[in-house]
Amino acid sequence: MEKILEVKNLCVSFKTHNGVVKAIRGVSFDLFKGETLAIVGESGSGKSVTTKVLMGILAKNGIIEEGEVLFDNKDLTKITKKEISNIKGKDIAIIFQDPMTSLNPTMTVGYQIAESIIEHQGLTKNEAKSKAMELIKLVGINQSEKRYKQYPHQLSGGMRQRIVIAIALACNPRILIADEPTTALDVTIQAQILDLIKELQEKIGLSIIFITHDLGVVANVADRVAVMYAGKIVEFGTAEEIFFDPRHPYTWGLLASVPDLNSEINKLYAIPGAPPNLLYPPKGDAFALRSDFALKVDLEEEPPFFKVTDTHYAATWLLHENAPKVEMPEILKVRIESMKKEVSQYDY
């Protein structure tokens, strides 16, 4: 498969009143052409900061300490502001969580779509207008003529998010970053937007980085999944590998703490404690203090990635050949068994 984006050992810190927060501590991943890579993690795990680096919209107090982001043989962390503004919004587009805050309330939605077409493609106003109208149709909104002239407050939440997607797609991007695009929406609307994103991906051949904390959504959209914790990727693999054969204790905890509609369980597994404060990142495995499976070495030394399969890697000492044999929690085992059974029941 063809790599479209390569992130190598990215480290980002923020200067704050209380000291330097090490928000991202060595993140590496590849994005392949046409795939959807989901990045999951809790708030503060660094998933959104990662995307901000890709877009060149890091807050002013953020510093890229190390690492590179390779796109089209260019390192996005080193190019000038002008060069990056040619890429952002054009080759790489982003949609955010809350469609109301990412739209300008004083401009018609149609013009907001046309604006970036005029900016990046140098079309005239009228050409841009007819292209914007096409995009409105493309994202599944009827009466494009009427909608073009409306303001964001006149549209429903789902429709606003469709407009945001239309703006993102206006310049035929190659990469779409979706940062929690459905979190603020109702489940029924969420389902529609997810379907729309998948449908557009097939039509246009987009590569998508999908940021979310909802594992159901991940299962729905992702080809591959990267799990982030405390500024690092702790495990990555194909969606099936992560959901059916997770290896990192944090992934275990995460999967076991969401209730599954289909299984009758009467206690949820809750990961004890809270994520570490990244003002003082812990030594060794950042998850060790909350983990039931921590080894002595976890408190001393950071685990490297161990290979599970060609596509599946996990950063935990448990996979070291000298580590004691540890199995995932019983709750999760039962769950995965029942999920597999469920699939065979449907017999696709």
Binding site: Q190, V258, M339, V343
Partner: peptide, 13 residues
């Protein structure tokens, strides 16, 4: 409503 809930099961989804 029920049909819209995503399940944490990639094969089913």
């Amino acid at each position: 409503l029920l049909s819209a809930i995503p399940h944490p099961n990639p094969l089913l989804e």
